[in-house]
Simulated scan of single mutants.
Amino acid sequence: MIPGDESWAIVDTHQHFQSLSNAAYPWLDPDRPEPLEGDLAPIRRDYLPADYRRDIEGFGIVKTVHVQNGRNPADPLDETRWLSALARQEGMPDAIVAYADLAAPDVERVLEAHAGFPRMRGIRQILNWHDEPRLRSVATPDLMESPHWRRGFGRLAPLGLSFDLQLYWPQMDLALALARAFPDTSIVLEHFGMVADRTAEGLVGWRSAINRLAQAPNVCVKLCGFGLGAPAWTIEATLPLLRHVLDAFGPKRTMVGTNMPVDLLFAAPNKIISMIHAIARDLSPDERIALLRSNAERFYRI
């Protein structure tokens, strides 16, 4: 944060804790095919509030939102229980986005149990589908159209839960149809739309899909995950992409995040924060406060 200017205070809407010493995180298994993030060895370790506080010291992050991190996926409530205990001890995270398989037969029971935790705010079920198997998170690209999955999705709003949407841009038209079918459900697009293909052709498709998805008033977006698909990313090359998203959604429907520790694979903390500052620098003070803090406080009720 710029000293003396609270308009630069940040709510980190996308960070992860992990404790590999006492839980299973299958996505970090060294025998798993190398994912979009590349070699995960540097983050195959515990990452707890003390580590996070060290990494963000002096950057003006005032609140955090923990997004599900694949802990013991066979028991979706385990991570929420663990994070709730961590929050009581450490004062963070301020909000929890948990995992649930929305197509599961017992999804209503799982969602109701999640909603019983005071810091619980939403659900993320990663929907990434790609022609390349190692980049897939689901078995089919059109899970959002499944009646069984939509039954689970339809339970979110009545329980006061939002949905963190992670997918690739070719799936965004399905997401737009989903948002229009459930206008009372608050949805946030993660990682500014997972720009995994940054070729000229890929960016044309991504920009067009972003513009269409932004038409749904119940969808907002997070600017985070700057290195996903571009491990050698630079501020100069990434800033035009973020500005396109900001122009499409507007500063009242855009939030920011660090994606730590995952994005530490690609950049030091000061570079991540510098990217966030760069996108906020040309905004008015009111727009900057909305982007960096107040939108997140409203969306996640923190």
Rank of each mutant, 00 (worst) to 15 (best):
L242W: 12
A214D: 05
N128A: 09
V11R: 05
H191N: 14
F182T: 14
G116Y: 08
R32K: 13
P170A: 12
A23G: 03
A209S: 12
N69I: 05
L36M: 13
L239K: 03
P217W: 02
A95S: 15
E145G: 05
Q171V: 13
F59V: 01
A214R: 02
W169D: 13
A175I: 12
Y300C: 05
D184E: 15
V11M: 09
N295T: 12
Q171S: 15
T13A: 08
N69W: 04
S208D: 13
V62P: 06
F182Y: 15
M260C: 04
R134D: 05
N22W: 06
I43N: 03
D101K: 04
G122Y: 04
V262A: 12
R301E: 09
A139W: 06
R119D: 11
D101R: 08
I10E: 03
L246W: 04
P183W: 12
L143H: 03
S19W: 14
T234F: 03
Q15A: 08
Q15S: 07
L77N: 02
A74S: 14
R288H: 02
F163Q: 12
V62H: 01
D39F: 04
D282Y: 07
D31E: 14
W169K: 02
R207E: 10
A113W: 06
I10M: 12
A177P: 04
Y99F: 15
Q215W: 01
P35E: 00
L20M: 12
D29N: 06
R298W: 02
H14I: 00
Q18P: 01
N128S: 12
E297Y: 01
M120S: 10
S137N: 15
C224E: 10
R71D: 00
D78P: 00
Q125L: 06
I126F: 00
L213F: 02
P133E: 13
G60T: 03
P269N: 02
Q171C: 14
D263R: 09
G58P: 03
W169Y: 10
A280C: 11
D131K: 06
S274R: 08
H148E: 15
W169G: 06
H66E: 06
L228G: 09
N270R: 11
P26C: 06
V65H: 00
L174D: 15
E57L: 13
E112H: 07
H277T: 01
F182R: 10
L86N: 02
T199Y: 03
A85H: 12
V65T: 08
Y99V: 04
V188M: 10
D46F: 08
L241Q: 14
S146Q: 13
R301G: 02
R45Y: 10
V65D: 00
V219C: 01
M275T: 14
A85S: 15
T140Y: 07
M1Y: 05
I61A: 02
A87T: 14
A179L: 13
A74P: 00
V219K: 00
P141S: 08
